[in-house]
Each structure stands twice: as structure tokens, then as C-alpha cells.
Amino acid sequence: MTRLDAFPVSPHLPAGQPGLRERRREQTNVEISETALTLFEHKGVEATTVGEIAQAAGVSQRTFFRYFATKEEAALRDHWAFEAVLTAGLDRLDSDMSPRLALETSFAAALTTYSDSSSIASRRLLRVNKLIKKEPTLRAVLARASVARNATLVDAVSKRFDCSELQIRLAVDVSIAVLRAALETWVDRSSTDETANLPETYSTARTLAYM
């Protein structure tokens, strides 16, 4: 069975009240990711090497690999953080609802983290997803990771609901499709509207999906 902690997230995201050493590690993590994003935006993923990222971030390649397994993972750090936010409430799904409604309600609650379009979290999520949109290499990484993610969701829903396997899989697949459509629409709208709001876009997507 796939564990909830199998969801693909960076193992270096902060938790609780970290000490000085952990804060320094987190700062290095952010700096490497920021550097990778900047280089990818200017040169593209394929044309950028780990060595270039490390040099620009002021760290050795050895240090780079202490934080990230690949250059793509470094760029996707904030997307992994987004998906970690989404899965934080999976053990509290409301079993009085249908599986799909429970998942969507959980997602909607998690997306309040991105209610402020000007927040650091929102801006970073927007930035990385703009890059994902134009970089097939990053989309391929996410496509591979989605297999584990969907298995995690199916496992979580199976533990909370006494439903058929088909109903559970449909609930997961449809919920993820609605979320993905909302995320991509938000990214597109943000190009011309700085006030575009991810939670509101997701709410609209849910309404349209039920029509």
C-alpha cells in the first residue's frame, strides 16, 4: 500500500520551529531552487547544468546533491510544497460525504494557503507553474510523479470510504482533473490579471464540473 508520506515532496521543507542549523539548510534549499528557476527561465532546462546552478547559488555540486537529486527537482520545489499542502488533510476526509466531494472539500480548504495572490507562496507557485507550462522536461517529471500521487489518494480514500474500487478511482481522477484545470487556468489568467485568485478559480471549476 502506498503511504501518505510517499507523496513526492521535498524532504527539506521546514516543520514546526526549526533551529538555527535547520533554518540555514532551508535558506540554502530556497537559494538553490531560486537559482535553478532563474537559470531555467533564461536558458531552458536542457541547456542548464547542475554545475551552473551550483556555481550561481554559491555552493558545490556535492552540496547541491545533498538537497536535490536532480536539477528538475530543484526547480519543482514549490510545486512539491503545493502538493504537500493538498495532502495534509487526507486523514481527515469527511466520510459523511461522497468520496469526490470529500476530496474536493479537502482541496478547497488546503488552497486557502494561496488566497493572497501577492503572497510569497502564491508567487512562487505561479512562477514554477509558468515554467512547467513551457518545459516538457518538467511536465514529464510531474507525469511520472502523478502515478505515486494518485496511488496515495486512492489509498487514503479507500481507508475512509466503503465504496467500490471504481467509485474511488473515479473520485480521485475527477477531483485531480478539476484541480489541474483550475491551476492551469489560474496560471494563464495571472499573465494579464495580477489579482487572479487560485481558490476562487478552483471554486468556479468545481461548479462547472458538476454542470
Results as ranks from 00 to 15, higher is better:
residue 176 I to C: 12
residue 199 P to M: 02
residue 126 L to M: 05
residue 54 A to M: 06
residue 61 Q to G: 05
residue 21 R to T: 10
residue 57 A to L: 01
residue 123 R to Q: 15
residue 25 R to N: 05
residue 199 P to G: 03
residue 37 L to V: 12
residue 45 V to T: 14
residue 165 E to M: 14
residue 112 T to S: 10
residue 76 L to H: 01
residue 40 F to I: 14
residue 163 C to D: 14
residue 132 I to W: 08
residue 102 A to D: 02
residue 44 G to D: 13
residue 15 A to V: 13
residue 211 M to R: 15
residue 157 V to Y: 03
residue 173 D to I: 11
residue 153 L to M: 12
residue 45 V to D: 12
residue 29 N to K: 08
residue 99 P to F: 08
residue 32 I to E: 01
residue 78 D to K: 02
residue 108 A to L: 04
residue 118 S to G: 12
residue 208 L to W: 08
residue 150 N to H: 07
residue 8 P to C: 00
residue 40 F to M: 12
residue 113 T to P: 00
residue 202 Y to L: 06
residue 177 A to N: 08
residue 26 E to N: 09
residue 163 C to E: 15
residue 13 L to R: 06
residue 204 T to N: 11
residue 123 R to E: 14
residue 21 R to I: 11
residue 132 I to E: 09
residue 9 V to G: 03
residue 109 A to V: 06
residue 121 A to Q: 09
residue 181 A to M: 06
residue 199 P to K: 03
residue 178 V to M: 07
residue 165 E to Q: 14
residue 174 V to T: 11
residue 45 V to E: 14
residue 63 T to Q: 09
residue 196 A to E: 06
residue 148 A to L: 10
residue 70 T to H: 10
residue 132 I to V: 15
residue 207 T to H: 10
residue 94 D to E: 06
residue 30 V to H: 04
residue 145 A to Y: 02
residue 79 H to P: 00
residue 206 R to T: 02
residue 59 V to Y: 01
residue 87 T to G: 08
residue 121 A to P: 02
residue 146 S to F: 05
residue 115 S to H: 13
residue 81 A to W: 04
residue 160 R to G: 02
residue 185 T to D: 12
residue 200 E to I: 12
residue 172 V to K: 02
residue 106 S to D: 00
residue 72 E to R: 12
residue 56 A to Y: 03
residue 2 T to Q: 10
residue 186 W to C: 07
residue 55 Q to P: 04
residue 193 D to Q: 10
residue 31 E to P: 01
residue 160 R to S: 11
residue 13 L to E: 05
residue 197 N to F: 04
residue 204 T to L: 14
residue 172 V to E: 01
residue 10 S to L: 07
residue 80 W to M: 12
residue 202 Y to T: 03
residue 108 A to E: 08
residue 36 A to S: 07
residue 46 E to G: 07
residue 185 T to G: 11
residue 4 L to G: 00
residue 92 R to T: 13
residue 104 E to T: 11
residue 85 V to T: 13
residue 169 R to G: 11
residue 151 A to V: 09
residue 65 F to E: 07
residue 26 E to P: 00
residue 176 I to W: 14
residue 198 L to Q: 04
residue 22 E to M: 00
residue 105 T to V: 03
residue 87 T to C: 09
residue 190 S to V: 01
residue 199 P to W: 00
residue 20 L to K: 11
residue 78 D to E: 11
residue 139 R to W: 11
residue 197 N to Y: 02
residue 161 F to A: 06
